[in-house]
């Protein structure tokens, strides 16, 4: 590496670290809303969407609530007063029909950013350790397997994209969709002898997706005064264009995780093929 590149790179990194430090230091001295939950968009705590869905669906909580009444929650305030209908209710705090998604992406969005970073660092370590090792050659797959994997790959890609585009409606989301896409690339790597995985393109796609994630968070910071806040209007529950920022972030996470995992598997396989 040239010296000027090194100096400019370290200068950019230093400025980023200083900016983040100022941000955190400023956040330390903000008042803490005196014991209440921090409001994202001036919501009433009765209308919290995740509570409604948790009570409605999982393990028959609503029946339990109807039979036991007040003893289920000591606080009577938390019991939902308004009914939610699929496809009609509008303008809730989240707007996503899948409660896991609304918790993972919106209430704990910063945590998700940390998880994606952990995955990125572990893939870097794996490729650095095992990337260049030379091993035995793989056995040639038969004609049926070669043709079949070429036919099957678009189906698997379609399934992964479906999972992470419908992440706010049906079970699934960014991480499962990315894992399914990576398993499709694994099928191509094992089944087709002539297939070469383009590592530089996947690295570019992966870093662009990470940059998009952080910039969506920064737009939320400037628009709503909180990092990764939901700044797009949340539509009707159950439609594809609902949930605001949640769908965008899950698409970005799906692309990023798929690129990362398939890069890791492809680097391992390439180390085998050098012989």
């Amino acid at each position: 590496m040239k010296k000027t590149e090194f100096i400019t790179g370290s200068f950019i990194a230093l400025t980023l670290v200083v900016l983040l430090g100022v941000f955190f230091f400023q956040a330390l001295f903000q008042p803490l809303y005196e014991g209440k939950v921090m409001p994202v968009d001036n919501v009433n705590l009765k209308n919290r969407l995740s509570l409604h869905y948790v009570l409605k669906n999982v393990h028959n909580a609503s029946k339990y609530l109807a039979s036991h009444g007040k003893s289920y929650f000591n606080n009577r305030e938390l019991v939902p007063s308004r009914k939610i209908t699929f496809g009609e209710s509008k303008n809730f705090e989240e707007g996503s029909a899948n409660e896991v998604t609304s918790i993972v992406v919106n209430y704990r969005g910063f945590d998700t950013l940390g998880e994606v970073t952990v995955l990125f660092i572990s893939i870097i370590g794996l490729t650095m350790l095992i990337g260049g090792v030379v091993g035995k050659k793989l056995r040639q797959p038969s004609l049926i397997v070669r043709t079949g994997s070429r036919f099957l790959f678009p189906f698997i890609l379609l399934f992964g994209i479906y999972i992470f585009i419908h992440g706010h409606l049906t079970p699934g989301g960014g991480f499962p969709g990315g894992a399914v896409i990576a398993s499709g690339f694994l099928l191509l790597l094992l089944g087709l002898e002539s297939y070469k995985f383009n590592t530089t393109a996947s690295k570019i796609v992966e870093s662009l997706a990470g940059l998009t994630f952080v910039s969506i968070g920064l737009v939320g910071l400037f628009a709503k005064n909180s990092f990764l806040a939901n700044f797009i209007p949340t539509g009707t529950i159950g439609f594809l264009y609902s949930a605001g920022m949640v769908a965008l972030i899950y698409i970005v996470i799906g692309i990023k995780v798929g690129a990362e995992l398939s890069t890791g598997v492809a680097e391992l396989k390439e180390g085998d093929e050098n012989d």
Partner: peptide, 20 residues
């Protein structure tokens, strides 16, 4: 129909590869 075509493609290929 999509799931059924997926099964129709995967199951014979996997059993062929197992036998081989």
């Amino acid at each position: 129909i999509v799931i059924a075509t997926f099964i129709l493609l995967t199951a014979p290929i996997s059993s062929h590869n197992l036998a081989r």
